Simulated assay, not measured.
Amino acid sequence: MPLPHDPGPHWGEVGIHGVHRQREWDAVATVELAVAGSEAWFVVLPDGSLVVEEGDADADRFRAALSVAPPFRAHAVRRNGATWAVAVRRIEAVELDDDTPGNEIEIAWDGSERTVRIDGAPTLAGVPGLERLAEARHRTYVVRAARLEGSTWEVAVSPL
């Protein structure tokens, strides 16, 4: 018995249609390590120090096995036995004043109006270190920052 007629669009061979997804990781590798646990999320700061964010595996062992220069964010997942998949994304880390408030900051400047959110709440306060960094790159911008440890922040600056 023949299959029912499919009236939908036919674009030919199976392939890629539409816009591709943006790359999430800069490097992905498999590593053979005898480490307990199942996964680890961690950040390696510019000075080489380690900030463990989540997971039950010894993240310090993965840092030594990676050839990516810091700073970077990484996620290691056990695949089979001692085989681990490790994904790495380079980040920008900056030092801000010790008295910088909050743990997450977003600043937007459209050329005439500035909006600032600290931990999701709007504020009139400014963060001069972040604003100088963004202004050096773009006339209008959005800058997002997340505290990594102490006065070290992960920063992303984008044109508006």
Rank of each mutant, 00 (worst) to 15 (best):
V142E: 13
P2V: 09
E106A: 14
A121I: 05
E154P: 05
L148E: 04
W25S: 03
L45W: 03
H75C: 05
A108I: 02
G102E: 12
T83S: 06
S49A: 13
E149S: 11
G37D: 13
G12W: 00
D99H: 14
A65N: 09
S38Y: 05
A125K: 06
G102H: 09
D99K: 13
E113P: 03
N80Q: 03
D60A: 15
R78S: 02
A69Y: 08
V77H: 05
H17V: 09
Q22K: 05
D26Y: 00
R73M: 07
A136K: 13
W41F: 07
S158Y: 10
W109R: 00
A69R: 15
P128D: 14
R144S: 13
E113K: 10
N80K: 01
V68Q: 14
S38E: 14
R139S: 14
H10R: 08
N80H: 00
D110V: 01
R78P: 01
H10P: 00
D60L: 11
A146V: 12
E24Y: 00
H75A: 06
R144T: 14
G111H: 06
A64C: 03
V86L: 10
S49N: 14
G12Y: 00
D47T: 11
V157G: 06
S151F: 01
V77C: 03
S112Q: 10
E135H: 12
A74D: 05
A125N: 12
A156R: 12
L96G: 04
A125F: 08
P46D: 04
V19A: 04
M1A: 13
P122M: 04
H75N: 08
W25G: 01
A34P: 09
P9S: 00
A57H: 09
V155L: 06
R73Y: 13
D56H: 08
A34D: 15
D60G: 15
R63P: 06
T123L: 12
L160M: 08
S38V: 14
V157A: 08
S112R: 12
